[in-house]
Design a binder for these strands. Structure first.
Length: 734
DNA sequence: CCCCTAGAGTTTTTT
DNA sequence: ACTCTAGGGG
């Protein structure tokens, strides 16, 4: 046997226990920063290098392409090319591969393409129009959520019993129509990929048996994020003999709202016998103080599998909690602290500002801009989601498959070529009446004859697509794409737009050409003796990849930039300096979650994720006053702040540290400490009830300055909020 | 066909 | 308050 020391020597006891387990199944509860990816990577090395399994027998599943790429990189670094043959990818990516391989068994046309969420939305909107349903009553968002939700539970329209519920009845009707539409056009949405892959197992036992005997070991990352369908798919694939190695953290489950079932991770040990459970609790990321705060906070959740993070390192600095007068002040504080950090020798890119909702980034951005601090906002539109890029892709899709109505709808008159709404309606009518695609309907309309102008425009479109297909045959993908961009008129169309936006659109099209030129048909990730055709044409593969990997959202850190992102997109990342801003009731936890214990626990997990992103220094801020949706709010500090032990934190106000000298209590509300400090300055504390001769009763919202000249802000029942100078206002305390 | 305006919506995001 | 989009008017 080879020297295996490099595989196990760098692991701690728990990690080694996990990596070398011989039980049939394993559930690895991996706390934040506990070396989760390391365990997965070393497990694969262990199986192949020590246990003698072929990498061909291993399937590793992740949620994001980024995670898959990182894991692949680390495996190659550890075991070199021995990892070749390993099947690894996202749930959707693997499902796609399977369906390509077995398109016939899956009941799909060979040229099927993927419908991304935006395409799906458009299809649904168009469908609602065709069905003459009022968008007010049947909002496309709701329809989309219904369809995806049902699919993720594994249900087809015929599986849903609407009972006497007219709402569900109609939804099912729409679902049914949507399904028919997709089938006709050869389109598969994201949830459909998973559902078909699941049905593939159920309907074709010989295929299932084949893959069961092939994938002896199945490793799953971020298991707490699996939805019902994904877990079902895994269960069926594992069967009686497959070995599941599940890694996850129930405390970091933050995607319940999009179908993830935290219950899956709790259920796992019950669904399978012989499950070894290992807890990875040693944290290599954060200071003791940060971990203590995180542990205390998450302990407020009832439904937990239980885990306590600890660190061999020292306690580090206390967590700074800053109470801002308003949102602007909060943003300013972030700027000041970043500058301070840099002055003390830190890197700007060490700092991340995390917020609950995207809208919060604007003020922070403005303040950073003003302070001339470079920053980068994560999230937002990804490359393949950009309208101009999708336009080109739609041309390519229609070239590949004329039945693709979604593509047709997008481009038949884009750029404008004189095919008006009236002509389009005629096409749709024919398509509906005769049950054919829009393309076919267009053809029969052309045969019937139209007004000269419409006839010419429509014919030119038809000829364009056909001639693009013709010239594309045998052509490199890159050249075909360039042809599409120029001959479709998109190039000219965007060139006419001299604004900055038009410019950037052209740049994106160049970037797209670049992407097609470097694109390589992927090595069949699931090589197989059963199927004849591993993949479709390079064009089809490129389009599928564009949908499955819409472009890196989480690119590398920009050099020397403060990182701005939502708490959700911070999962999996770490930063020396972390700001959590807007930690206020109503914002975080969000208003929509406060009256639901289940949702509230998810918000708390989100707070836990945020806290555990910090390596050295964590700063939490909240404001007494905030503008939102056009009006003023006077939020209370978040309950999550109260759940952090007092001895972990340092309260800060603009006037300096307001930390009382005495320590002692570790529970109870920090407000006491805070208000004591404030009261010393103004004579009034936040939340004090006061009476004013003219304005009547009110509550103190904010204070500023100290002594006679101090000002306080009071929210009066009748008169609204006012700033008053303490020395003049003659306020009575109630 | 393009531009403008009125109206709606505004937690979180991947695939 | 602000942004996005649909639909109408020029």
């Amino acid at each position: 046997m080879d020297d295996i020391s490099h595989i196990i020597d760098t692991l701690n006891d728990a990690q080694r226990d996990a990596v070398t387990t011989e039980d049939q199944h394993a559930l690895i509860l991996a706390g934040a920063g506990s070396g989760k990816t390391k365990v997965l990577v070393h497990r694969i090395a262990w199986l192949t290098q020590v246990m003698g399994f072929s990498s061909y027998n291993i399937l590793a599943v992740t949620f994001t392409n980024k995670a898959a790429a990182e894991m692949r990189g680390r495996i190659e670094a550890l075991v070199g090319n021995q990892s070749q043959g390993l099947t690894m990818g996202t749930f959707h990516g693997i499902a796609y591969r399977l369906l390509r391989q077995h398109f016939q068994e899956a009941g799909l046309p060979q040229s099927f393409q993927i419908l991304d969420s935006d395409d799906q939305k458009r299809v649904i909107k168009r469908l609602l129009k065709t069905m003459e349903l009022d968008e007010q009553q049947w909002p496309h968002r709701q329809v989309q959520a219904f369809i995806n939700g049902e699919k993720e539970e594994g249900r087809r329209p015929q599986h849903i019993d609407p009972g006497h519920n007219p709402f569900v009845k109609r939804m099912v009707q729409i679902y049914q129509a949507y399904e028919a539409q997709c089938k006709k056009a050869g389109l598969v949405d994201f949830a459909e990929l998973l559902l078909r892959a699941h049905e593939l197992w159920l309907k074709h036992p010989h295929l299932l048996a084949h893959y069961q005997s092939r994938f002896r070991h199945i490793l799953v990352d971020e298991f707490q994020d699996t939805n019902t369908l994904q877990y079902a798919w895994l269960r069926v694939l594992a069967g009686a003999t497959g070995k599941l190695f599940i890694v996850g953290d129930d405390d970091q489950s933050i995607y319940g709202w999009r179908g993830a079932k935290i219950e899956n991770i709790r259920q796992f040990s019950q669904d399978f016998a012989n499950v070894k459970t290992v807890r990875l609790e040693q944290n290599y990321r954060s200071t003791g103080t940060i971990l203590k705060a995180a542990n205390a906070l998450i302990a407020h959740n009832q439904e937990r599998m239980g885990k306590t993070l600890w660190s061999a390192g020292d306690d580090g600095n206390p967590i700074k909690i800053y109470e801002a007068f308003n949102d602007l002040d909060e943003a300013q504080y972030v700027c000041n602290q970043v500058n301070q950090w840099v002055k003390e020798g830190g890197e700007r890119s060490d700092a991340a500002v995390l917020y609950r909702s995207n809208a919060q980034s604007r003020l922070i951005e403005q303040a950073l801009l003003q302070a001339k601090i470079p920053y980068r906002v994560y999230g937002g539109l990804r490359f393949y989601d950009r309208a101009e890029v999708k336009d080109v892709l739609a041309y390519l899709r229609l070239i590949l498959n004329r039945q693709d109505d979604a593509a047709f709808e997008r481009i038949y008159n884009h750029p404008p070529r004189g095919i008006g709404a009236k002509t389009a309606d005629m096409i749709r009518d024919i398509a509906k009446m005769e049950g054919v695609s829009l393309w076919n309907a267009m053809e029969s309309l052309l045969e019937q004859g139209l007004t000269a102008r419409a006839q010419t425009s429509l014919m030119s479109f038809k000829t364009l697509i056909e001639s693009l297909e013709e010239s594309g045959e045998g052509q490199e993908l890159k050249d075909q794409t360039m042809q599409v961009i120029s001959r479709s008129g998109l190039q000219l169309h965007f060139e006419k737009d001299t604004s900055e936006q038009g410019q950037s659109r052209l740049e994106n099209l160049d970037e797209l050409i670049n992407a097609t030129s470097v694109f390589k048909t992927p090595q069949s990730a699931i090589e197989d003796s059963l199927g004849d055709v591993a993949y479709a044409s390079p064009l089809a593969e490129f389009l599928a990849q564009a949908a499955l990997e819409a472009g890196e959202q989480q690119a590398d850190k920009w050099e020397s930039c403060v990182q701005l992102m939502t708490l959700h997109s911070a999962k999996g990342l770490e930063f020396p300096l972390v700001f959590m801003v807007g930690v206020e009731e109503g914002l975080f936890p969000s208003q929509q979650s406060t009256d639901d214990a289940y949702k509230l626990e998810e918000e708390r997990r989100l707070a836990y994720v945020g806290i555990t992103r910090a390596e050295k220094q964590l700063m939490i801020t909240f404001a007494n006053r905030r503008r939102m949706h056009g009006s003023e709010f006077y939020p209370q500090p978040s309950r999550f702040i109260k759940e952090i032990p007092n001895d972990c934190v340092d309260f800060v106000r603009l006037t300096g540290s307001a930390r009382p000298s005495s320590g002692g209590q570790t529970s109870g509300w920090n407000e006491t400490k805070l208000n004591d400090a404030l009261a010393q300055q103004t004579g009034f504390a936040l939340g004090d009830r006061v009476f004013h001769q003219k304005f009547g009763e009110g509550t103190v919202l904010a204070t500023e300055g100290a002594g006679e000249h101090a000002r306080i802000q009071v929210n009066f029942k009748a008169a609204g909020s006012k700033w008053l100078v303490v020395g003049f206002a003659k306020l009575e305390r109630l």
